[in-house]
């Protein structure tokens, strides 16, 4: 039971990031590697702020804003300086490593165990027995649901339409007298904001910030998005955002199943990428990108 709960918890945390990757990869068709560093950026911001006494709930918004700022940087490098999409992401990803460390005052590891977080505070402690046992998963579910619903609503607005259009047919956006560059920047800001939010939630749930938590985030995000959109879209009319959230949980379940079969933790990233490769091959998603 506790393993299943753990999988769901992790799945929900990473689902926030996967929703961001869904925006860049599926909607914008932009392979954005900056999430590998915006995820720990969110964690760094949240951990540092919590230690400074900022209310834990508020840190989520600040982390989102910090991530959005980083995403804007990726967008500006790509749109204004005309650097290729993949490289713009790598530039920001690398630069953020130093920035993340500078946020935590050059500490690669920042524990916040004894601090109040969105998961551990006076209110949660006061809850009765059955509720308190599942408080973490309930809080995560609430956050993910709110983000999912907001994202779904956003996609139905004029601005959301334009975001979907820019990945679908850039020329049409120009024909509508809109700058396609700024629409892309907006999408990247949103996506990286979500990745940072995910990181902020992650560090509060785990109780620490660690500089290397972001490694492989993009692989995890892409795998989740592809599982979600390819597998779950077959079950009738299911919203893409819901599919991505479910995809993340399935992905986490597969990884933890592999681990439960006796694999050492040191092989975690190897399993992660092998698993991603299998998904790509099975879903035949490689054809589009490889020439």
């Amino acid at each position: 039971m506790s393993i299943i709960l753990g999988v769901i918890n992790e799945g929900l945390i990473y689902a926030l990031m996967a929703l961001g990757v869904y925006i860049t990869y599926s909607i914008l068709d932009f392979p954005d590697l900056s999430v590998d560093s915006t995820f720990p950026l969110g964690a760094a911001v949240a951990a540092t702020m919590i230690l400074a006494g900022v209310p834990p709930f508020l840190t989520l918004f600040i982390a989102f804003a910090a991530g959005a700022l980083a995403g804007t940087a990726t967008g500006l490098i790509h749109v204004k300086l005309k650097v290729r999409d993949l490289l713009s992401g790598i530039i920001v990803m690398t630069a953020l490593y130093s920035i993340n460390l500078s946020i935590t005052d050059n500490k690669a590891n920042l524990p916040i165990f004894s601090q109040e977080t969105i998961f551990e505070n006076a209110f949660i402690d006061g809850l009765a027995k059955p509720l308190s046992e599942y408080s973490t998963v309930i809080i995560l579910l609430l956050i993910v649901l709110v983000v999912k619903i907001l994202l779904d609503l956003y996609m139905k607005t004029r601005s959301g339409y334009l975001l979907r259009a820019v990945g679908d047919n850039e020329t049409l956006v120009t024909s509508l007298a809109k700058d396609k560059g700024s629409v892309k920047i907006l999408g990247l800001a949103l996506a990286n904001g979500l990745a940072a939010l995910s990181g902020a939630v992650y560090c509060q749930q785990k109780g620490f910030f660690e500089i290397s938590i972001g490694t492989g985030t993009i692989v995890m995000g892409l795998a989740s998005v592809i599982i979600g959109t390819k597998v779950f879209s077959r079950f009738g009319k299911i919203k893409a955002t819901t599919a991505v959230i479910l995809g993340t949980i399935v992905y986490k379940a597969c990884i933890s199943a592999a681990m439960a079969m006796g694999l050492k933790t040191l092989y975690m990233k190897l399993i992660t990428s092998l698993f991603f490769l299998i998904i790509l091959v099975v879903s035949e998603n490689r054809k589009k990108k490889v020439r």
């Binding site: 004029r158 601005s159 339409y161 047919n169 509508l176």
Partner: peptide
């Protein structure tokens, strides 16, 4: 293919074209 968005519905495409010249803000797309 250049004049329309293939992954959006006819209604969504028409709504976007109708919004041309107006701000693409957070009001409902359609």
């Amino acid at each position: 293919a250049v004049g329309t968005c293939p992954n959006m519905t006819i209604l969504e495409n028409m709504s976007m074209a109708d919004t041309k010249g107006k701000p693409f803000n957070l009001r409902w797309g359609t």
